[in-house]
Design a protein around this nucleic acid. Structure first.
Lengths: 197, 197
DNA sequence: ATAAAAAGTGAGTGATTAATTGCTAATATT
DNA sequence: AATATTAGCAATTAATCACTCACTTTTTAT
């Protein structure tokens, strides 16, 4: 027996994410992961030095996938508001497919127990907010959004709203369609940012 | 020795909240609470049957205080947008004074481990969202907000944005002034809801 | 082939922590 | 004053888990 290192790492990360999605971060024990992968519990530590490194690996993987999806979702040259709409809907669709993400991201465990994980999460958030700020900035330049809008601030609030919706979705155990929020949310943002007067 | 039951309960709840604010929910062990109150660890269980009941008590206390503050904050007869502004700023000021609230509310531990606590949190959220929906609804009636605004939906997004901002504040370890967000946030909401055309 | 490296295991350790138990001392009730 | 109730404690329990160790098997490289 014995699969190659990288393959096992992936299996472990995927199992951890699946467990987080289904039962919450607390239940992602090394034993539960091992059972799911089909290996003994100590074997997990052959592939990750600590449990936190599994989480860090999972978050890194999710971030990669997310930004890849975002880049794919806003190809072509659309107006800023259309571009923002695409961003929002891509983001919601992505999270919808990866329920482990909110479970990991919103877990106090991650932030407060491991400075390393906190750094990882903060970096992802900053990068994501920056991406949206660019779109808003371009929209302000082109007159699509109001000149009084501060791109950085607007981006923070857009991200906050999306996160709030996702958090609600996670807290209410995924009991409504996240993707169904894309359209009304985009309308909300358009109204908040759009050129008036 | 021996203080009355209700007084000790309060001391325990306050200690739990202080610990959550300072070090996160994970560190709110019955031992840590006991140390802070100045009693032995088993004595905690003379006043609460389980640890979860301490959390439930803390959340209930916070909810009471919050709605009291909100009611006090929107007395008088102002226009709907001013009323919403008052709500937002009261809310942010309250959370600013009670950092244990976000720590408790955003902890996956609460939601996923105890159905009872989950119910408590969901009730508070629903009540809070309803309160905002009323204000938005009145604003739409009076023509202060746009007729196309759905009060329930608008309220959900307003709450989502506020929660997102608070979550960011909590994740970034309270490193910016939450109360400073009141004004720009209110501007954001006003733009999103205000009568256009 | 053979040595070295990697992947695997069963058994165990140590730390943490909510909750129990059996008792004592203080307070309230009658 | 006698009794019951309540608040308190020290000692312990029982469960959970991340992580280690000593050892075996499989794969890779020489």
């Amino acid at each position: 027996m014995g699969k190659p290192h990288h393959q096992r790492r992936q299996e472990i990360i995927q199992s951890a994410l699946a467990l987080a999605a289904e039962q919450g971060v607390k239940k992602v024990t090394t034993q539960a992961i091992a059972d799911r992968v089909g290996i003994a519990q100590p074997t997990v530590f052959r592939h990750f030095k600590t449990r936190d490194e599994i989480f860090a690996g999972a978050i890194a993987w999710l971030a990669d996938q997310l930004f890849e999806a975002l880049d794919a979702g806003i190809g072509g040259d659309m107006a800023a508001d259309r571009r923002l709409e695409a961003l929002v809907s891509t983001q919601l669709a992505f999270v919808s497919r990866h329920r482990g993400l909110p479970r990991m991201l919103f877990s106090d465990r991650l932030h407060l127990e491991s400075p390393m994980l906190k750094k990882v999460v903060q970096r992802v958030m900053a990068r994501y907010t920056g991406r949206i700020a660019e779109v808003i900035g371009a929209g302000v330049e082109s007159g699509c959004f109001d000149r009084s809008v501060d791109p950085e601030q607007g981006a923070r609030y857009v991200v906050a709203t999306i996160q709030g919706v996702i958090m609600r979705w996670s807290i209410f155990d995924f009991d409504f369609s996240l993707e169904g929020e894309a359209e009304p949310l985009s309308d909300f943002f358009r109204a908040a940012l759009k050129s008036r007067g």
